[in-house]
Structure formats: C-alpha cells, structure tokens
C-alpha cells in the first residue's frame, strides 16, 4: 500500500474572509455603508440600533440584519419602526458569518439603501474572528457587565473601529467606572473613537449619530468621486 502526504493548505477561517470581501464589494457597488454591531447579551445593541433608526431614518435609507441564535424578537422590535429588517437565525452558531450575511443581502434592495445595520449575536468572543463584509466594526459594551470586561476580551476591542461604553448612567449603581473602560479600550486600540453613551443623555447619543452620518456621507462622496 502506498502512503502519500498531501499538502492541503486550506484555511477554514480565510474562506470566510474571502466571502466577506465579496459581500463588501457588493455593498460598495451599491454605495451602502455596512456596520457590524458586536457586543454581549444585554449590552444594548438592539436599543442603539432602534435609536439609530429613529434618529437617522428620515435622512438616510436604512436596512437592518438582526442576528439571533433562535427566535426573531430583535427583528420584530426593529421592524416596528418601519425599516426593512431581515432576521437571521444562526441556529447553533454563536456569531454571524459572511455566508449568513450573503444570504440575507439577497433579500435587501441594496440600490435603495444608504446604511445597513447588522446586529451580531450577543457574544464578545467568536464575532471577533468573523468578518461579514462590513465597513465598520462597532463593539457595544455596557457598564453593567463590570468595568473589567474590556480587558477580559482584548481581541474584539483590538479589532474594532468604534467602541461604545453604554448605559453610562448606571455606572455608579453597579460600582463600575465608565472612564476605566474607556481607558482600557484606548489602551488596546489607541486610534479608535470611544463613545460613552446612555439613552437618557441625548447629547451622548447625538455624538454617535453624527459619527455614523459623517461616515455614511464620506462613503457616498467617495463613491461619487
């Protein structure tokens, strides 16, 4: 019998990256700014998306992909606001991947969308490894998760473009320091904007809305040029 070593060299995670690059190309072709919202269960991802839809819905054409392991509660909450919402059930998976997003993109009229908000599954670990084709990665973390949460999950903060420290108004009640969390995020990723937000502080939310609108406007301008 013959024994034979075959060099395979197939990278299973890179296969996702390739698919993500294809998604991004499709989004670029249609001038869509895609945002991947990552964060733990209960960090406030869905609420921030709802507020973003309410605030930017009149200026931009929005669509939402809402990922959940099972059920479509989040998608239902967002769809109530009258925006195209595609629920994605990952089944047994703890994260969205490029293949699931590719499928979801088929049900969206991309030509008529300016900003696509993608809500990942509540998890600070696996989503860090999976690109979806997004332009912007946003990590939402709340003070109620404890103020050492940033340092406990360095990879996701290392590979994000914006960090949101949410529910800052609750910090005192849970003995957490939003400032410590901000410092930790800046330490891991010195170049990114870190926003401290609360839905009860309109000014803090406005900072987030203006960050997103200026990025969407910039992408539109780049597409025109």
């Amino acid at each position: 019998m013959l024994m034979h070593v075959i060099n395979v060299g197939h990278d299973v995670l890179k296969a996702n990256d390739k698919l993500a690059a294809r998604n991004k190309k499709l989004l670029d072709k249609n001038g869509v700014l895609a945002i991947n919202f990552m964060g733990a269960i209960g960090s406030g991802k869905t609420t921030i998306i709802e507020k973003t839809v309410e605030n930017l819905g009149s200026k931009y054409r929005l669509a939402v992909i809402a990922g959940d392991v099972v059920a479509d509660m989040d998608a239902g909450r967002i769809a109530k606001l009258g925006v195209t919402t595609i629920p994605v059930n990952t089944g047994r998976e703890c994260h969205l991947d490029a293949k699931l997003v590719e499928k979801a993109l088929k049900s969206i009229d991309l030509k008529n969308v300016d900003i696509l908000l993608m809500e990942n599954v509540g998890n600070l670990i696996c989503p860090a490894d999976y690109k979806l084709g997004e332009h912007l990665r946003v990590v939402v973390v709340s003070v109620t998760e404890g103020d050492d949460i940033v340092l406990k999950h360095p990879m996701i903060f290392k590979h994000t473009d914006i960090a949101i420290i949410h529910k800052k108004d609750l910090a005192e009640a849970v003995f957490a320091s939003a400032e410590k969390m901000e410092d930790d995020a800046k330490h891991l990723n010195p170049d990114i904007p870190v926003l401290k937000t609360s839905i009860h502080d309109a000014e803090s939310m406005d900072k987030w809305f203006s960050t997103i609108s200026s990025m969407a406007d910039q992408l539109k301008q780049e597409n025109k040029d």
Partner: peptide, 9 residues
C-alpha cells in the same frame, strides 16, 4: 488551516 493529510492509496 488544514496543513496536510497523510493518505493510503
């Protein structure tokens, strides 16, 4: 990455 597999032919 799947680096290699050793098969019998």
């Amino acid at each position: 990455v799947i680096e290699s597999i050793d098969i019998e032919q």
